[in-house]
Design a protein around this nucleic acid. Structure first.
Length: 420
RNA sequence: GUGGGUGUAGCCGAGGGGACUAAGGCGUCAGGUUGUGGCCCUGAAGAUCGAGGGUUCGAAUCCCUCCACCCACCCCA
């Protein structure tokens, strides 16, 4: 028997109400903040992601689904949404639109990870990108939108962690200070950190290894090495967040897994368990558009995992109403009546009335059991009697009462009795 | 990628070397007389006990290898 590939999942009918619930919230929140939807292909040229995320990130080094098509082009299944949106922004000359250009997406995301609770090889993200402004008020607005989005969903107990990792002016100085400090401690670092020391020193701060943490605790802090501009930007952002009533916790060790971030970075953590269960995050990426061949264009965005949102909604005990039942179940008795039943089902549906028709051979009793199981409010019974009299038996399943009504009167009658 | 746990019908789940021709519940299907549901009663279908190999007279039960899921690390959403 075939199974869904490892780390992927079917989203079964019982799960769909949660997805629809989240999608509706996305629609509502993006409407409020003025974002317009964009959909990009599931795969892009591999270079786009390598360029964007950075060659030494885990995503690029070991998590991409990369393949060559028959024309020899290297393609990669989208491992994150931002580069694809930026590519589309550039490709379609959106820099000619009044900035900031605000775009959102709901997209499958692919990463070759070892699956675990809330971690899949294919998952789905809602992301938003605001391209074309360096104003810290935009950072605040992006964070506010994410925050209000979770609130709208009814997710409680989230915490927002915030940090600034500087820009290309101040980061080199900080990295140098960091390396200076770490030089003396290299011998005591874990194997991963030894590699990070060489390739991606910022990540040193993020190591969970107790011995490394101890070292990281005393490492020079990025916030103290920000250049005046970045420092002012970060101060302004915090001011605006305060104005918006968004409680942010400073985490000087917060570094994101993508190299393109500048200045603002943030993550949302659920209160439940494990810090490694980030539900969403984002930041500013002022150099990415240039990196991809555009003019200097500051930008800011965030993304959140839909599966993780749903996990948390369930943990909170969110109950969603069951899917709607048909209004009418049509039960026929005999072949002649079946033809009338097929016709009636078609008519009801064309009138906008959800109707279910029984299939196959069954006793009337079995048919009524089927009608009951369908959850239909009404059953319409058609047999020889009804056929002969040009009527139809309309049974109210709830009150268990029924009456014969003229066939022609059925639709008006249902129209009247079925609440829209 | 590392370490640990789990794997019995569509779902939940008992059984941990011979009494298993694998319990029970949910669900499905049929019947409980003649054209009628929900409760109830009866019956049926549905499982090569995750897959493959091994030990044994005998394996769902023990061992090995895979696969999948779960948990932690890692990483992130």
């Amino acid at each position: 028997m075939y199974q869904a590939p490892r780390g992927t999942a079917d989203i079964l009918p019982v799960e769909q109400p949660y997805w629809r619930y989240v999608e509706r919230a996305i629609e509502e929140i993006t409407r409020r903040y003025g974002y317009r939807r964009i959909d990009t292909p599931v795969f892009e040229e591999t270079g786009l992601f390598r360029r964007s995320a950075g060659d030494y990130t885990d995503i690029v080094q070991k998590e991409m689904y990369t393949f060559e098509d028959r024309g020899g082009v290297s393609l990669t299944l989208k491992p994150e949404g931002t580069p694809a949106v930026c590519r589309a922004y550039l490709e379609h000359g959106m820099h000619n639109l009044p900035p900031p250009v605000k775009l959102y997406y709901i997209s499958p995301i692919f990463r070759y990870d070892r699956p675990q609770a809330g971690r899949y090889r294919q998952h789905h993200q809602f992301g938003a990108e605001a391209i074309g402004s360096a104003d810290p008020a935009l950072d605040a607005e992006v964070i506010d939108m994410a925050w209000q989005f979770y609130r709208l969903l009814g997710l409680s107990g989230l915490t927002l962690e915030l940090n600034s990792i500087g820009c290309k002016t101040c980061r080199p100085g900080y990295l140098a200070a960091l390396k200076d400090y770490y030089c003396a401690h290299v011998a005591r670092l874990c194997a991963d950190c030894k590699a990070r020391f060489e390739k991606n020193p910022l990540r040193l701060l993020d190591c969970k290894e107790p011995s490394c943490q101890e070292i990281a605790d005393n490492a020079p802090r990025g916030l103290e090495h920000l250049c005046p501009d970045c420092s002012a930007h970060f101060a302004a952002l915090q001011k605006y967040l305060a104005v918006l009533g968004i409680p942010a916790t400073l985490n000087h060790r917060l570094v994101r897994g993508l190299d393109y971030y500048t200045r603002t970075v943030f993550e949302f953590q659920p209160s439940f368990e494990g810090r490694q269960s980030t539900i969403g995050g984002g930041g500013r990426y002022d150099d990415l558009i240039v990196e991809l061949g555009g003019r200097p264009t500051p930008a800011c965005g965030f993304a959140t995992g839909i599966e993780r949102i749903i996990i948390n909604l369930k943990r909170q005990g969110l109950e969603l109403p069951p899917p709607p039942a048909p209004a009418v179940f049509i039960a026929f008795i005999g072949e002649a009546a079946k033809e009338a039943a097929v016709r009636l089902a078609g008519e009801l549906r064309r009138e906008g009335i959800p109707a279910a028709l029984g299939f196959g051979e069954r006793s009337l009793k079995g048919r009524m059991r089927e009608a009951d199981a369908s959850g239909a409010r009404y059953a319409v019974i058609i047999g020889d009697e009804e056929l002969a009299g040009g009527t139809v038996t309309l049974r109210d399943m709830r009150s268990a009462t029924q009456e014969k009504v003229p066939a022609a009167a059925l639709i008006p009658r249902l129209r009247r009795d079925i609440p829209a």
